[in-house]
Amino acid sequence: MSTVCIDCRYIGPRPSGIGEVVRNLIACLPGMAPDLRFVLLRNPLCGTRLSTAPNVVEWDVAAPANGPRTMWGLSRVVDFTDVDLFHATFNIMPARLPVPCVTTIHDIMWLTNPAWCRTGPRGWIERHFYSHGIRRAIRSSRAIAAVSRASADAIAAYAPHAADRTHVTLSGVSVRFRPVEPDQNVLTSLGLRPDRPFILTVGQYAPYKNHEGALRGFAKAFSHRPEIDLVLVQRMGKATHRLLELAKSLGIADRVQLVPTVSEQVLLSLYAMAKALLHPSFCEGFGNPIAEAMACGCPVVTSNRSAMPEVTGGASLLAAPDDPAAIARALTMIVDDEKAAACLRRTGLERAAQLQWNAFAEANLAIYRSILADRS
């Protein structure tokens, strides 16, 4: 029986897009491949077992997922003696692995557009760390799993020699994201007014997420319509004050509501009650919030570049992320044209239903089997 080791340490107490991807991968794989043995590297802070499948064992690894011991010393932390294949699930490939490696690359912004990632002194350190690990993944992985065609194309453009080793494993959206009855008590609990319609933006505050562009597009659309708010759900940090200063300069400070990370149940209610999700990123490997919003029946306005047109599949309004007027036109259409909004809700639900985690897991399993067959 061949053994596949999957790094699951992104699954932890804090919500994570990559953690969601890995969680759904390991939920599907063991049942699909009872002839394989899976070793899951687990974050000790996870708190619970990741799988109860009989062909799964779990090893706690205290080393941080994105740290020096993972990048340069994982083979000293983990015993690979009986492992036939390793799956690195979060962009970087550890050094000196004694077995073939599949690396999931979500995006290559650290290589192509590092200014879109974290800035400042910490950003400088992370730029060198991640670019080192991603370059190794592109150069040395036996196979690369890209979570969208857009990411696969970006990898091929950056490193043509990696194109034939790059496979598209399109991410999915969990059935947990679904239409729910609006609960206005949720808004009250967040300090929001239930009687005020709102546009929703969800995601960490990083340059590539373009939250400044969301503010500018919202202001362009609704500066003279004081009854509409913009709600941003994000992990608020030291730089959040910049958004508040921009909102003030745009004359919308009293209508921009910042909400810290919320529970999934609260997020479902926000998707249910929002007029639209506004997601004007400059780049996404996939873009979990747009898939989640569609699955909840929330109309989506997103960017006309990177993976976002691919993920929404014609079920959203697209706008250039650096064009506030285009963003404003899309938002205004949804708010003012109920037929257009209803069409987006319907087509969004249909598109989300196509984004199946089973298909994602099957695509990864096909990569595993191909590599394992070459070793036999």
Rank of each mutant, 00 (worst) to 15 (best):
C101H: 07
L25K: 07
I26K: 06
V186A: 11
R305K: 12
L40R: 05
T103D: 00
G12C: 07
L344P: 03
I334Y: 05
V231L: 08
E350F: 09
Y205K: 11
L25Q: 12
A145K: 08
A340N: 08
I371G: 07
I155D: 02
P98T: 09
A145S: 13
A137H: 08
T312C: 14
A157M: 04
D164W: 08
V180L: 06
L344T: 01
A157L: 10
R149H: 14
T112Y: 00
K220L: 06
A307C: 02
M294F: 07
V301I: 12
L270Y: 04
P179V: 09
P179F: 05
H87P: 01
M109W: 02
G213M: 01
L250W: 03
P30V: 05
K238Y: 14
G287V: 01
R139K: 13
R369T: 06
M308T: 11
A276N: 02
T201D: 07
V56I: 10
A33V: 05
D35K: 09
L355Q: 04
T312D: 03
G251F: 11
R165D: 06
C8V: 10
Y271N: 03
Q204G: 14
W116R: 12
Q234F: 09
R136C: 10
P182R: 02
A373E: 14
Q257L: 11
A293I: 08
N24H: 15
D322T: 13
W59D: 09
L278C: 02
P160Y: 05
K238A: 15
E227A: 13
A340T: 10
Y158M: 08
D153R: 12
L85E: 07
A363S: 14
V56A: 07
I290H: 01
Q354R: 15
P114W: 06
F198E: 04
A293F: 00
L372C: 10
H128T: 15
R235W: 03
A366Q: 11
G73S: 13
T312L: 04
P54V: 09
D254V: 04
E212F: 14
A162N: 00
L246P: 00
G31R: 14
N358I: 10
F218I: 06
V301E: 08
L349R: 13
S249W: 06
A361E: 00
V186Y: 00
R176V: 04
S263D: 12
W72V: 15
E292R: 05
H106G: 11
C283Q: 15
L268C: 09
H211N: 12
D164C: 14
P182I: 02
E292L: 05
R69Y: 13
R69S: 15
E245H: 12
L200Y: 03
V21E: 04
E310T: 10
C343I: 10
V77H: 12
G213Y: 01
R242N: 14
G19F: 01
P289Y: 01
G213R: 02
R225C: 11
V259S: 09
D322P: 05
